[in-house]
């Protein structure tokens, strides 16, 4: 490959996902050779992350009435992102799915407890990694078997990367993350429009099993549950309660089937 000289201009291209794929490796090598350029890139990436976090919460704010009315001028109000409606939905899902023990455990603002911690970590990881353009995952979906085997081994339970293709989400890949000096696993999915969701799994021994609970933070929402000493969370941004609930239910069933299988 011919190496072209890189400049600061390429730092912006790289941050904005506009650097041609075939030049990325050489670009990273150039950064490794130029510590000041690497520091500049990292600094810009850090500023961008601060900006994202500062504005992430706006997405889930309740709409002021003067804006909400645009959605009401039709027969059924479409305010599906209003999380106030999720509570009723979760109970309905639990009752309708045959998973009786999932019933009822809606908590609008969970505080403390191992399960809430799982959700907080899942949201944090989601916000940080789902915003990545270039380095979303460590191991891509093209090595799915290796990815699932590796993460199962590190986390210590039989995992599957649930199939969400019925909802339009395809596996991008996964990551290993630290959680209290132990390993946590994260699978990331993406739909055709580029929207991303993630499944987070971490060991959480000692805490009793829970039903589905909801946590919203940093502009993202997680539906999470504890089961058999492990915590699980499905996290998304700007997704309707119905869709997130369906995805979490599907993940639960696929994980359960794998662990029994």
């Amino acid at each position: 490959m011919t190496v072209r000289p890189f400049t600061d201009h390429d730092i912006h291209l790289s941050l904005d996902g506009e650097l041609p794929a075939e030049e990325r490796e050489e670009f990273e090598a150039w950064l490794d050779r130029s510590p000041d350029k690497k520091a500049l890139r990292d600094r810009y990436a850090d500023d961008r992350e601060k900006l994202r976090l500062a504005l992430a919460g706006v997405i889930d704010e309740e709409l002021p009435d003067r804006l909400a009315r645009f959605g009401r001028e039709r027969p059924t109000p479409p305010r599906s992102w209003s999380w106030r409606t999720v509570a009723a939905g979760i109970v309905l899902f639990a009752a309708g799915s045959g998973l009786g023990y999932l019933a009822g455990a809606y908590s609008p603002s969970p505080t403390g407890g191992g399960a809430a911690q799982i959700a907080a970590r899942a949201i944090e990881a989601h916000v940080i990694y789902s915003a990545e353009k270039l380095h979303v995952v460590e191991v891509g979906a093209d090595q799915k078997d290796h990815l699932v085997g590796w993460l199962s081994k590190r986390v210590g339970t039989t995992l599957v990367a649930p199939d969400f293709s019925a909802s339009g989400y395809e596996l991008v890949g996964g990551r290993l993350l630290p959680a209290d000096s132990r390993a946590a696993a994260m699978f990331i999915y993406q739909d055709a429009a580029g929207a991303r969701i993630s499944l987070y799994v971490a060991r959480d021994s000692g805490a009793p099993d829970t039903g589905f609970k909801l946590r919203e933070e940093l502009g993202a929402c997680a539906l999470y549950w504890l089961d058999g000493g492990y915590g699980y969370a499905v996290t998304a941004t700007n997704m309707s309660g119905d869709t997130l609930r369906a995805l979490a239910g599907s993940a639960y069933q696929q994980l359960l089937a794998a662990q029994r299988g």
Binding site: L55, L67, S80, N238
Partner: peptide
């Protein structure tokens, strides 16, 4: 209409990035 209404949260975020004041940002969205 549904597609437009579903974009309101993103419009608000973009507006808040453009305009510091929350009311001015929502004015722009409206």
């Amino acid at each position: 209409r549904t597609a437009i209404v579903a974009e309101i949260p993103h419009m608000r975020r973009y507006a808040r990035a453009l305009l510091r004041d929350r009311d001015s940002a929502d004015d722009l969205v409206q």
